[in-house]
Amino acid sequence: MSLLRVSGLSRSFGGLKAVDNVSFDLEAGQLLALLGPNGAGKSTCFNMVNGQLPPSSGSIRLDGQELVGMRPRDIWRLGVGRTFQIAATFNSMTVLENVQTALVSRERKTFGLWKSAGSRYTDEAFALLEQVGMGADAHRACGVLAYGDVKRVELAIALANRPKLLLMDEPTAGMAPKERNELMALTKRLVTEHRIGVLFTEHSMDVVFAYADRMIVLARGKLIAEGDADTIRNDPRVQEVYFGTGKTFRPHAPLHDRAGGEARPAGQGAQQ
């Protein structure tokens, strides 16, 4: 049985079908990239898996359990973690306190949180920070960290819930090439060690092709391609969607630009 099984997933906004009958599976220990140009339905699909947005139709099963109709909080308690495009940490709190807060929430021991969180789960919080290479910074405030280090702390926070499935929304957004490759190499190692399934959206094609085990591509709400790096890179439908064939597109746009290895669909801006 697949860890995550999405079947016939659709979501309409009025007469617009943002996601149209999308199906895919994700195995434990696998990184699956969700790709597509602006308006493809990536964010809508992502948010339905997380429970933030109810589907119009379809099924989302985690280890065989239906998630449709459940609240995000309940889905999180089943073992679905998430990181965000803009890192979500408490800047005024220390690195250690951020992870301790996540551990307190996991154990549902929030009474008197602000008075006692600092004395709870210290060893486990330190262990999580060591896993992501942030143990030496445990007592620093998150607000003074470099952005790449904040993303590492966010990963430790997500791991505090011992997730089966991790949803990562643009995990390397805003990071320099060296930082993003270090973060994804770390993620790949942890995913393999702990048998976590990862569904992630990403604009940096160097990251996608280097670290994703499989990829699925959406266009106008529909699933148009799925497979490994070679399959996706050579798929004519993907080339059409990303680079176009008309005069308004750059037909020879490279997958890796010189500045940072990030390729975007011609004429497109940031992912929605």
Rank of each mutant, 00 (worst) to 15 (best):
L3W: 08
S7W: 10
G8L: 06
L9N: 01
R11M: 11
F13G: 06
A18L: 07
N21S: 13
V22E: 01
F24N: 03
L26V: 07
Q30L: 06
A33G: 13
L34P: 07
G39V: 09
G41S: 04
S43P: 12
C45H: 09
G51W: 04
Q52D: 14
S56D: 11
R61V: 06
D63P: 11
E66T: 01
R71L: 10
P72C: 08
I75P: 07
R77S: 09
V80E: 06
G81V: 01
I86R: 14
T94G: 01
V95G: 00
V95A: 06
L96K: 03
E97L: 04
N98D: 13
V99D: 00
V104D: 14
V104G: 08
L113K: 10
K115C: 09
K115Q: 14
S116T: 14
T122Y: 14
E124H: 09
E124R: 14
Q131M: 04
G135N: 07
D137I: 04
C142S: 07
V144G: 11
L145D: 00
L145P: 03
G148V: 00
V150G: 04
A156D: 01
L159N: 00
L165K: 04
M168W: 03
P171E: 04
M175E: 03
K178I: 12
E182W: 04
A185D: 15
R189D: 15
R195Q: 15
V198Y: 05
T201D: 12
F209W: 06
A212H: 02
R214I: 06
M215T: 05
V217I: 04
A219N: 15
K222D: 12
K222N: 14
E226G: 13
D228S: 11
A229R: 13
T231P: 11
I232L: 10
R233A: 09
D235E: 08
P236V: 06
R237E: 15
G244W: 08
F249V: 08
P254H: 09
E262W: 09
A263E: 04
Q268A: 15
A270N: 14
